[in-house]
Simulated assay, not measured.
Amino acid sequence: MATLIPPSPAASTTPPAAGSNPAATEPQKVDYLDLPCPIPYEEIHREALMSLKPELFEGLRFDFMKGLNQKFSLSHSVMMGPTEVPSQSSDVIKVPTANYEFGANFIDPKLMLFGRVMTDGRLSARLKCDLAENLTLKGNAQLTNEPHMSHGMFNFDYKGSDYRTQVQLGNGALLGASYIQSVTPHLSLGGEVFWAGQHRKSGIGYAARYNTDKMVATGQVASTGMVALGYVQKVSEKISLASDFMYNYMSRDVTASFGYDCILRQCRLRGKIDSNGVVSAFLEERLNMGLNFLLSAEIDHKKKDYKFGFGLTVGE
């Protein structure tokens, strides 16, 4: 009689295929009223710059930082190495130089102040102050003995829920504004305008940035003739590959570069090679708590020039 009993509805249902997930096949809906806030317009290439443009130097460098309390610290830097002198010939002319830099830093959750003074007479300062919850003031200035080389600039950065806008004021009647908006959870678009009253020049630019957990692609174009493209691929949590393409259709200058960024347990290694025949590498190794060793190298095959530097950083 068991053969006469009809099967239950649950038993007669055809099981789903192996590995299938009905919920995963449905496209995830995008809530355009809840998009992430993009990064500032001026930092859209920051991942590529971290890999392709490390702070290279030549000669000897020694940095010492001493914290006086939780908010205030002092820094001392000694740099000895050659400095390139501009010349009309293709030969590279270097003059040995040495200078000392003294700095003072004040770091607070809502206020950061950085000041530097060098033995050659240069004085620089940076400021970051949170005027409100979403409004930040940034400023930087530099004073030198050389004529027309001193400058100053203030930026007002407003952070919205899914957009950022910035207004710039600088010496020489420099005015600028930028805006960047998240269009999707991964794509953001923006633009900028500026006016340099001293030189009677104006410009406009556009930018796009697409980022995921594994890659970042950026593009920027401006009326000044600059076209910049960048791409960063995150191979793993500690290894990234980066490339960029720079083109100026006014001067017809083209540069392409490829680089890498490796973060190991005790060191960080960055390097690149570009279309001009320049190969560079930068090593930052942590020898002990508060003690870092630096190695910098650059070879310019076109100019037949090389730069090598090593340094120590003491203090956190």
Score class of each variant (00 low, 15 high):
S202M: 10
L189K: 00
L189Y: 04
Q266E: 12
G311S: 08
T136L: 15
L74V: 08
N292Y: 06
A132Q: 15
K234Y: 07
T97N: 13
E42G: 08
A125Y: 03
E43P: 01
K238D: 10
G121N: 09
M118F: 14
C262K: 06
A18Y: 11
F245M: 11
K302L: 00
A18M: 07
F106G: 05
S251L: 12
K234I: 02
I93V: 07
G103H: 03
F258A: 11
V254E: 00
Y247D: 02
P109T: 00
L33P: 07
Y210R: 00
Y210H: 10
T14W: 12
T13I: 14
I39P: 11
A208S: 11
H199A: 13
N21S: 12
M50P: 03
V167L: 15
K138P: 00
E55Q: 14
A207S: 12
Q198G: 08
A23M: 14
G205A: 14
Y306N: 08
I273N: 02
G115Q: 06
R265V: 09
N134S: 07
D244L: 01
E133Y: 12
I93Y: 00
S90C: 00
E43N: 14
S296G: 06
L174K: 15
L229V: 12
A196C: 10
I107G: 01
I273M: 09
K128E: 12
K303V: 01
H199M: 13
L35E: 10
D162Y: 12
L60Y: 07
L60N: 04
S178D: 08
K304T: 06
N155R: 13
F62K: 00
S150A: 09
R116T: 15
E58H: 10
L175G: 04
I180R: 08
K303A: 04
A208N: 03
M65V: 07
K138H: 13
K128Q: 10
S150P: 02
A17E: 04
A217K: 03
G170F: 03
F308M: 09
V279I: 13
V278L: 02
A141H: 02
A24Q: 09
N171Q: 11
T212W: 08
K304A: 03
G225W: 05
P22T: 09
S223I: 10
